[in-house]
Computed example of a mutant assay.
Amino acid sequence: MSANVQTPKAVVEVTAADLQGPGVVFCPNPKQTLWSNHPKVYLDVATTGEARCAYCGTVYKLKAGEKVGHGH
């Protein structure tokens, strides 16, 4: 038997400028096609550097070297 490991549908690299509010991105993102839409969810990328959408499995990763600011 093989282990049941969920591979991401896609990996989307984001920059600090792509983050909204307190360091989140939303999924589905504007680049995804209409047929794959699900309810909009906000994913915290700033805390750990990545987040996975529970609906579609897309992983959002902060690009290497990006710094998340804590104020504007």
Rank of each mutant, 00 (worst) to 15 (best):
M1F: 11
M1I: 14
M1N: 07
S2Q: 05
S2T: 10
A3M: 10
N4E: 08
N4I: 09
N4P: 02
V5F: 10
V5I: 15
V5H: 12
Q6M: 10
T7I: 08
T7H: 12
K9I: 03
K9N: 10
K9F: 13
K9S: 15
A10Y: 05
A10C: 04
A10I: 00
V11T: 13
V11C: 09
V11W: 11
V12M: 06
V12A: 02
V14F: 09
V14E: 04
T15R: 14
T15P: 01
T15S: 15
A16N: 04
A16R: 09
A16I: 05
A16L: 06
A17P: 02
A17L: 10
A17M: 08
D18A: 09
D18P: 05
Q20D: 12
Q20L: 15
Q20F: 11
G21Y: 15
P22D: 15
G23I: 06
V24K: 13
V25M: 02
V25Y: 04
F26R: 05
C27H: 01
C27P: 08
C27A: 03
P28E: 02
P28D: 04
P28W: 07
N29F: 06
N29V: 01
P30Q: 10
P30E: 11
K31F: 13
K31H: 14
Q32H: 05
T33Q: 09
L34H: 13
L34F: 13
W35T: 12
S36C: 09
N37K: 07
N37L: 02
N37I: 00
N37F: 08
H38S: 00
H38P: 00
H38Q: 00
P39F: 01
P39M: 02
K40G: 03
K40A: 11
K40Q: 14
K40H: 10
K40R: 15
K40D: 10
V41C: 00
Y42T: 06
Y42I: 01
L43D: 00
L43I: 00
L43Q: 01
V45K: 06
V45A: 03
T47V: 08
T48G: 06
T48N: 14
T48E: 13
T48R: 07
G49M: 05
G49E: 07
E50F: 10
E50G: 06
A51Q: 03
A51M: 09
A51P: 08
R52Q: 13
R52F: 07
R52N: 05
R52Y: 03
A54Y: 07
Y55W: 11
Y55M: 09
Y55V: 01
C56V: 02
G57Q: 11
G57L: 07
T58P: 01
T58E: 02
T58F: 01
V59M: 01
V59E: 03
Y60N: 07
Y60K: 04
Y60F: 15
Y60E: 05
Y60H: 07
Y60D: 02
K61R: 15
K61G: 05
K61L: 07
L62S: 02
L62N: 03
L62Q: 07
K63V: 06
K63H: 06
K63W: 12
K63T: 11
A64Y: 07
A64K: 10
E66M: 03
K67R: 14
V68T: 03
G69V: 11
G69D: 13
H70K: 09
G71I: 02
H72C: 05
